[in-house]
Design a protein around this nucleic acid. Structure first.
Lengths: 334, 334
DNA sequence: CACTTTTTTGCAACCGGTTGCAAAATATGA
DNA sequence: TCATATTTTGCAACCGGTTGCAAAAAAGTG
């Protein structure tokens, strides 16, 4: 069933090298030769074996796409953008789901076995050390949606989560809430930690405003809903900065389901600006994260690293902005 | 940087075959030899090159995972299940996004170049001919969420969309609506066609009930919302069977956004039972599609085909059931 | 036309592994 | 202990390609 280069060579009555060359751009082949080979190849239905050639060229065009965020709808968009972007450059995403994997070493080994040319870690919850394991193994790596460090050890593309936390806090302050809280995602996620820290820094400048925080155990609707239901049993804050949109929507459901109104009784601001946030029946005020730019920039960076593997680690941070919708009360006039 | 089998052999002072054998399960190696080789391998940090070995073994353990549904959140769940299930069997998903690809031949060629052992087409919108192109190329293929045919030409795993259409129609009839409609997904999608046809068949047994249909141009929130807004401008039906949950939610948003109530003024029933459907602020009555079973069965079938490529095409169809929530009025007592 | 320069082609070695086969080593039995 | 059966090991060819090098062919020059 499978047609090899040798068979094409025999049919065309030329050497194997000649066939190889007609399928390698930039090789020296005469027009006559090319036509002969292409004819034979067409007749036989030949197409070159990318993996065999990778043996000698040292490039597979395979890119590991590693993530553990398979429950946050925003990542469907992320995967869409990554796969299309990589495909457009002739690269092939080998998807790795780390949802329940404990040992990073294992996925490093696996991706090395498949000789991936590079790895994109697309996750806001994996620790920075994870991406480093690839770098240490000599595999070009970009951590998308990763933690911003001023002296990055691997390439990072994302947002400044600390600044987002501050932004959210400032916006709650500006609206005159005097009891606010941060409802984070999983406590161990760097994105949660950074958003909290920014939130606290900003709030510490307003000691008269009461602020607190708690964590949901995943970036998911259910986790957000559960955590908000728990908070509602006690004395809830007037407004919450939720760790991300899907958490916000879960929280929203808990609040309205408990007979309270948003933003009347409780205000909510999210982060991400996922497609759903603008649905009429959700209409979430949130901080917009420029996903498309982050993904495109990651891909561009990856491509650059394939050309120059020794490129120094770089952090590319994109600005976020607040999208005003209907889940926070208006800014006070005073 | 990369360590080869030869280097391990030299360090251990044995032949290359010996090294190869220690890393091949079921090969004949003495314990002494194994220990020697493993020691050398560990010291050198060797791990075998899966692609090089695929050259002689003829198996890459690579599985093409082809889809064009990157805007329907239910597919995030599908990808999660597929990637985990494949990984658990030592298979590696090579993700192919067909969203804007016109030519099926091209992806067939690409996947053959990468010597995938098999292809899973995970899509409810691609035509059956697409999967067939892989079979014709001699690549084992399973079409998940594909069209059910009584004499299938490729392996199909999914639901009976015609029956789902009937089920939806019956449930609307039972609730005493006397003007109903089907709001489908993209007209060319086989799932849309089949759901519509089931719906019509059932309604034709109730000529006194007025029924009609129209199509949204994608399985997406926006498309559903747009289409419902269009329908509302004229004289809308009393209840709609929407092509899928995400369309339903879009429609829901259009209805409530227009000041009408659900299910008071307009009833809606969806299909899929995606996670979101049970969110309190959506609470969608819908037909449950057993995604997990479909995915697991697809993987199982793929594994079986890898063992026996000549296995005859088979259709595995799973039953669906209605999940009653809050977007249809109660069944009439009479 | 003969001679030099440039392009095209084929040879053969190599990429990193696997595997059939026969020789070497070890185990078994009398 | 020796002859035989069994297991382990290495050799060498192969998987499907690529590529440096030198020979062959084509093109350019006087």
């Amino acid at each position: 069933m499978i047609v090899t280069l040798k068979e094409v060579a025999e049919r065309a009555g030329v050497s194997r090298s000649a066939v190889s060359r007609t399928f390698t751009s930039g090789a020296s082949v005469s027009d006559k030769m090319r036509r002969k080979v292409e004819k034979a190849a067409r007749e036989l239905g030949y197409s070159p074996n990318a993996l065999a050639s990778s043996l000698t060229t040292g490039r597979t065009k395979l890119i590991g796409l590693v993530s553990n965020n398979f429950h946050n709808p925003i990542f469907l968009e992320v995967f869409d953008l990554f796969t299309r972007g990589l495909q457009d450059r002739g690269l092939r995403p080998l998807l790795v789901n780390l949802s329940d994997e404990t040992d990073p070493e294992q996925s490093v080994r696996m991706l090395r076995q498949y000789s991936v040319d590079g790895v994109v870690v697309a996750s806001s919850t994996l620790p920075p050390g994870f991406a480093k394991a690839f770098r240490d193994a000599g595999v070009p790596v970009v951590h998308s949606f990763g933690r911003y460090l001023s002296a990055p050890q691997v390439h990072v593309v994302g947002i400044d989560n600390v600044e987002c936390g501050r932004m959210a806090a400032r916006s709650l302050v500006a609206r005159g809430y005097d009891c606010v809280a941060f409802m984070g995602g999983p406590e161990r996620a760097t994105s949660t930690q950074d958003r909290l820290s920014g939130f606290m820094i900003e709030m510490s400048a307003h000691p008269h405003i009461h602020s607190s925080h708690s964590f949901a155990d995943a970036y998911s609707f259910d986790a957000g809903r559960r955590e908000m239901l728990r908070l509602l049993k006690d004395t809830p804050a007037q407004a919450y900065f939720c760790g991300d949109d899907v958490l916000s929507i879960g929280a929203l459901s808990a609040v309205t389901g408990s007979g309270l109104s948003v933003p009347g009784d409780i205000g909510i601001i999210g982060l991400n600006d996922m497609e759903m946030a603008r649905w009429e029946n959700i209409n979430l005020t949130t901080i917009h994260q420029p996903i498309q730019q982050i993904v495109n920039s990651s891909i561009e960076l990856m491509a650059a690293m394939l050309d120059d593997p020794d490129r120094l680690p770089e952090a590319r941070i994109f600005a976020c902005s607040i999208v005003e919708r209907g889940t926070l009360r208006p800014v006070r006039a005073d």
